[in-house]
Design a protein around this nucleic acid. Structure first.
Length: 648
RNA sequence: GCUGCUGUAGCUCAGAGGUAGAGCACUCCCUUGGUAAGGGAGAGGUCGAGAGUUCAAUUCUCUCCAGCAGCACCA
């Protein structure tokens, strides 16, 4: 057999007989590497140590020190080890698929009985046992018919279906450890003992549809997390705990921002503190929009179905709409209305009032539009995914030629707002034409190019999401990263030539003829509700001073200072600071603790000394140290802190 | 919407086939205390809703509602 030449990372090349495996290569390099090896990279592909090498290639051997490869393999092997453990414990459970995901893996099972938390404990124990057996992992390529026959005989219908879905030219790989076998594309470790036995944990079990299709069998999915070391696992579990601490639902209660109740699922009762954030953000957005050339409108909540029929929502979106029927005493027919799920059709109605000229374009029409959508019950989540919300919505009516400039202008607008709100890290995705679409290819070419050009014009890179656009036009999505690295898609800009067509919007062009405008649907925050949730979680409740609902508490140390406290609060309020007095009969320790837990950014403590010296003692949230300053100075300082970022 | 779990005081949670308990919060009293819980007393619950089994249901069963996790959804 001919030799092949293998090039190593250091640039040296050696020849080996064709068909040599990376395992043999590793063992040839050194005995210890042979043992420590977990996989190889072959011309950039992740390669099982057992797969033969049949051509010249660049190769490097991975060990547990190579993070990416190690984590991938550990998690992937754990998926199989878990499936084996489950089948050892319950032989009649059917296996399906088990991929690697962020921080771990999952595996989907078909079992009539639900897995209980106790079951998870038992599975984990069996998994550790399997790891300790150090079973060698071996692989073979099987004929398609043989594989199908095998799985049919063993009562594993899901595997048969998977094989049917694998393209005919791809090899079918079988993997074993011990007697246990699974279909898998690999790669895998050398033996089960290479998985760290103390660095994984089974987290939860939940339903999941077979092949992600809600019309098919519901399976049981067990999630696990895994790392290279016990310490890394611990770190991850701590991180989860931290994330739970900043859950906006918990902070919303603790900071007395809002509540929700059974009678209005998916809708928010805003308390004074929460509403202060809400209106503060809305006031800020309103100032920004005015400066950027928007006009603001307001449109009806309850609209006759006739409009929704024309706009297409009645046919395409009805299951998400709250339908309102009204019995009119003298009417022949019932009036059927729907709460608006979107503002766009109403905005076209405003546009359509009076004749529009090309001179009126671009027309930027904004509304803090309250919408109601009947979201599926399982989708609801705190104030992040609700049935009643308000968008910072606007529609830009323009010509096709204006799309690029208007889009660039919007990106700059959005960038300033994200920066003001403390989000410097965000990205743009451009979603292009989907398979099912309307409009000509030339028109799609033109508009997609305009969006890309606008991004470059505004100075930003973008990533393309092939085929993810709406049926009527491409879109930009703006995703920001929060303080703990989570990503949220907030902003959006969608090009829509469809709705102006359906609702017969037009303007008189320079040529004196009627023309169809294009609409750009756009939002920066998305919805106020969701964005406030993001703000709360990103800041862990410690909101920037200007938007914090309670900015200052002036607390008396002894009751002799109560008058001075009240006077100070009045000065602060006059200076535009949200301040309140705490003259309760409690010790200062108690007051400091309570307002710190309530995330009040500044506590001013006042006792005999301060009254006499006309000072206050300033204590900022999160700082142990306090500072005594003249009261007037502090008021001036806090007045500045309280000014929104666009007004400083 | 689907699968699983949960629903007891304002909050966090314990409890049992014989109609309920803790801590914190709340009210009152004492205490005037210098930067993350001072002390005492008191009040507070149709045990998510409805039906069934039972001498007896908040506890067991069923249905519904809501919440949580995941899936699906987010034209």
């Amino acid at each position: 057999m001919a030799d092949i030449s293998l090039t190593f990372p250091d640039g040296n090349a050696r020849s080996y007989p064709q068909g040599t495996t990376p395992a043999e290569v590793a063992a040839d390099i050194s005995k210890s590497l042979g043992k420590a090896a977990i996989s190889a990279n072959v011309d950039g592909a992740h390669w099982d140590l057992q797969w033969p090498l049949d051509r010249d290639c660049a190769i490097s051997i991975n060990t547990l020190k190579d993070d990416a490869a190690a984590l991938e393999l550990i998690r992937h092997d754990l998926a199989h080890i878990m499936a084996r453990a489950v089948q050892e414990l319950w032989p009649d459970v059917k296996v399906t698929i088990g991929p690697v995901i962020d921080n771990g893996w999952y595996y989907d099972f078909d079992r009539s009985e639900p897995f209980t938390p106790e079951d998870l404990g038992a599975i984990e124990k069996t998994m550790k046992d399997i790891i300790n057996r150090r079973d060698p992992i071996r692989t073979e390529v099987w004929e398609r018919t043989r594989a199908i026959q095998h799985y049919e005989q063993n009562g594993e219908p899901y595997k048969v279906e998977l094989i049917d879905a694998i393209p005919g030219d791809e090899p079918l790989r079988m993997y074993w450890h011990g007697d246990w076998q699974d279909l898998c594309r690999g790669p895998h470790l050398q033996h089960t003992g290479q998985v760290p036995a103390d660095a994984f944990k089974l987290m939860s079990v939940a339903g999941a549809y077979w092949r992600g299709d809600s019309s098919r069998q519901m399976l049981q999915r067990i999630y696990g997390v895994a790392f290279k070391s016990k310490e890394d696992l611990k770190k991850h579990l701590n991180m989860l705990e931290e994330a739970a601490k900043r859950d906006h639902r918990k902070l919303g209660r603790e900071m007395d921002l809002f509540h929700m109740q059974e009678e209005a699922p998916g809708q928010i009762f805003w308390h004074p503190n929460g509403w202060t954030i809400y209106t503060g953000l809305q006031d800020y957005m309103r100032r920004q929009q005015r400066r950027d050339g928007y006009v603001e409108v307001n449109t009806p909540q309850v609209v006759d179905r006739k409009l929704w029929e024309k706009s297409g929502h009645w046919d395409n979106y009805q299951e998400h709409m709250f339908i309102v029927e009204v019995d009119e005493e003298h009417a022949r027919e019932k009036a059927v209305n729907a709460l608006k799920p979107m503002n766009c059709p109403c905005h076209v109605q405003v546009f359509n009032q009076g004749l529009k000229s090309y001179r009126d374009l671009p027309l930027r029409m904004a509304e803090f539009g309250s919408c109601n959508r009947y979201e599926p019950s399982g989708a609801l989540h705190g104030i992040m995914r609700v049935r009643g919300f308000t968008q910072d919505d606007a529609h830009i009516f323009c010509t096709e030629e204006q799309i690029e400039e208007e889009t660039a202008k919007f990106i700059r607008f959005l960038a300033k707002i994200y920066a003001d709100l403390g989000f410097e890290d965000w990205t743009i995705k451009l979603s292009t034409r989907p398979e099912k679409r309307i409009g000509s290819d030339e028109s799609w070419d033109m508009v997609e190019a305009a969006l890309g050009a606008a991004c470059r014009k505004a100075g930003y890179d973008y990533e393309i999401q092939e085929g993810e656009g709406a049926f009527y036009g491409p879109k930009l999505e703006f995703t920001l990263t929060d303080a703990i690295g989570r990503q949220w898609q907030c902003g959006t800009l969608q090009v829509d030539p469809n709705l102006p067509e359906r609702l017969d919007a037009n303007y008189i062009g320079q040529d004196g003829a009627k023309h169809r405008p294009v609409m750009l649907h756009r939002a920066v925050l998305g919805s106020f509700e969701r964005f406030i949730g993001i703000l709360i979680e990103s800041h862990a409740g410690k909101l920037p001073f200007w938007i914090a609902p309670r900015q200052v508490v002036v607390a008396s140390i002894t009751s002799d200072a109560d008058d001075y406290v009240r006077e100070t609060v009045e000065l602060l309020i006059a200076a535009g600071v949200r301040a309140e007095a705490d003259t309760r009969n409690e010790k200062i320790n108690f007051k400091v603790r309570e307002h710190s837990l309530g995330k009040v950014p500044v506590i001013l403590a006042v006792g005999h000394r301060e009254v006499e010296e006309r000072t206050v003692t300033v204590r900022r949230l999160g700082e142990k140290q306090t500072q005594v300053s003249p009261r007037d100075e502090v008021v001036t300082l806090l007045r500045q802190d309280a000014t929104p970022p666009d007004l400083t």
